[in-house]
């Protein structure tokens, strides 16, 4: 039966060729993979594969350059917005995106994030927030929720001792250099479709020199959170989204 249906003319979905053939190193169920895929799909649909340069971070997505079939640069920890700034200014006709996690973007790279956003660099910044340092083994991140257990907050994040979770996206939305700031997620089909539309908008904005387009993706870390992928997505919905609510924070006309 299905043999009759599996024909080129019936194709409705296939892996985008803007992803390489490499199997991603991410843990099963990790939102990094889904976000990579929809960024690559946007690049494919806009037909800008040959005019795009991506900047990979340090963290779980350090090897993103092995997966995006576009020219890629791997930055030092937290410095992706600085690289992206120079690339865009030196190649203004190109589409430039940075891709960073919460430790990279909101802790060690806070200055580069804030100042790239405040200067209004004409780039797309993708920010994966899963409230943890995944690559180094599940330590506390700037975005770790109160009472959340990590390898360096084993009894839960104690605000008095360890400080508060940082809503960096709310901060960058205040800066005049950002034109589009939104918070999305990718754990259901509807949310993936919505997030992809946001990423598309964030790339389209580069055509009009509008400033930084900033897309936060609230994501999971089932290994770091020590849950199954499906349970991690449920925990994300109940806990992460209560503190990091989804939706647009800023849409400039």
């Amino acid at each position: 039966m299905s043999k009759d249906i599996i024909k080129p003319e019936n194709l409705v979905y296939r892996r985008t060729p803007v992803l390489t053939k490499n199997t991603m190193h991410y843990c099963p169920g990790c939102g990094h993979g889904t976000t990579h895929r929809i960024v690559a799909e946007v690049i494919e649909e806009m037909g800008i594969q040959e005019q795009t340069i991506g900047i990979a971070p340090v963290g779980c997505a350090v090897l993103a350059y092995n997966y995006f079939e576009v020219d890629m640069q791997e930055a030092a920890h937290g410095r992706a917005p600085a690289l992206a700034t120079a690339v865009k200014r030196l190649k203004p006709d190109f589409f430039v995106f940075s891709y960073q996690g919460d430790g990279d973007l909101a802790a060690i790279g806070t200055a580069e994030t804030i100042h790239a956003c405040n200067r209004g660099e004409n780039i797309t910044m993708i920010f994966i927030n899963n409230g943890i340092y995944g690559m180094t083994g599940g330590q506390m991140a700037p975005t770790t929720l109160e009472d959340m257990k990590t390898a360096t907050s084993p009894y839960g994040r104690d605000i008095a001792m360890m400080g508060n979770p940082l809503k960096i996206t709310e901060i960058v939305a205040q800066l005049p250099g950002t034109c589009y700031v939104t918070r999305q997620a990718v754990y259901t089909p509807a949310l993936v479709r919505k997030c992809k539309r946001a990423i598309r908008q964030a790339f389209e904005n580069q055509k009009e020199n509008k400033g930084v387009s900033f897309v936060e993706v609230v994501s999971n870390c089932n290994s770091g959170w020590k849950m199954t992928p499906v349970a991690a997505n449920q925990w994300l919905e109940e806990n992460m989204l209560a503190f990091y609510p989804l939706g647009d924070l800023k849409v400039s006309k």
Binding site: T23, M24, Y26, G29, T34, R37, T188, V192
Partner: peptide, 14 residues
């Protein structure tokens, strides 16, 4: 659409 690893190809009869 939700597959993080892009392992599924989908066809639909017209």
């Amino acid at each position: 659409i939700v597959c993080p690893d892009g392992v599924i190809t989908v066809y639909r009869a017209k």
